[in-house]
């Protein structure tokens, strides 16, 4: 059974819909990557899962439950976590406080999870008492991902985690995403750096104008000449 699946979802910000019948489905073992040109509705698809905008048609099923148009705060305890693209840390809170906020919905002891996050991002452990606003872009992205992991999600939604980062940090973030996935957390992410992201994705979804254009494994899409020509800038391996 799929961890999360979107069935013919039509959604938007209140005006004309941006998504027109999108289908996306991934398993807990998958790293799913949504790629496509600007304005294709990639971020909109993520936000519709997380209840940040109105789904007018279709349905979204997560872990066997229909979660269409549920509010974000009810989705976090169910095992969903979302990392927005921008403004994704509490700048005036310290790193450790940021992580604590990710565990707000948990009533049990989350010290272990925090240790795991620090093990995953050793930089953060050194700066745990520093305010998140003082960190570099890459470190902020780590704080954001760490915060999202604190609720022990089953599915992690990442909106362009590599935006604005140097290639070094981008690769490090992608490596962490792969590692997170190996611990049994499903990942669905939107990426501009399509080639690198599809390189390690187990499932890829190409959206254009709010509809599915291609769906397949990451390698399939990379090797597909049509996809390569239209979205990856030339036909290279």
């Amino acid at each position: 059974m799929a961890l999360v699946s979107l069935h013919d979802v039509t959604a938007g910000y209140g005006g004309a819909p941006i998504l027109h019948g999108v289908n996306i489905s991934i398993e807990a073992s998958d790293v799913g990557v949504i790629v496509g040109p600007n304005g294709a509705g990639k971020s909109t698809a993520l936000k519709s899962i997380f209840g940040l905008l109105k789904v007018s048609e279709g349905s979204i099923v997560f872990d066997g439950d229909d979660i269409t148009n549920r509010s974000p705060d009810s989705l976090v305890p169910k095992g969903l976590s979302f990392v927005p693209q921008e403004h994704n840390v509490f700048t005036s809170l310290s790193v450790s406080e940021n992580l604590e906020m990710g565990a707000f919905t948990r009533t049990d002891d989350f010290a272990d999870t925090m240790t795991e996050v620090y093990d995953m991002f050793p930089d953060l452990k050194l700066k745990r008492h520093q305010r998140a606003g003082e960190l570099s872009g890459g470190q902020r992205q780590m704080v954001a991902m760490g915060r999202a992991l604190m609720s022990r999600p089953k599915l992690l939604l990442l909106d362009e985690p590599s935006a604005g980062l140097s290639p070094r940090y981008m690769m490090e973030i992608f490596a962490q995403v792969a590692r997170i996935n190996q611990t049994g957390v499903g990942v669905l992410m939107v990426e501009q750096n399509a080639r690198q992201a599809l390189g390690f994705a187990t499932k890829g979804f190409v959206l254009a104008n709010g509809s599915n254009l291609f769906t397949g494994t990451g390698q399939d899409l990379l090797n597909d000449p049509d996809v390569a020509k239209s979205f990856l800038g030339g036909h290279q391996p």
Partner: peptide, 15 residues
Amino acid sequence: RAMADNMDLALVSGI
């Protein structure tokens, strides 16, 4: 403090 800092992120975090 988190909510005063970033309302949208507070919602997303499940606060």
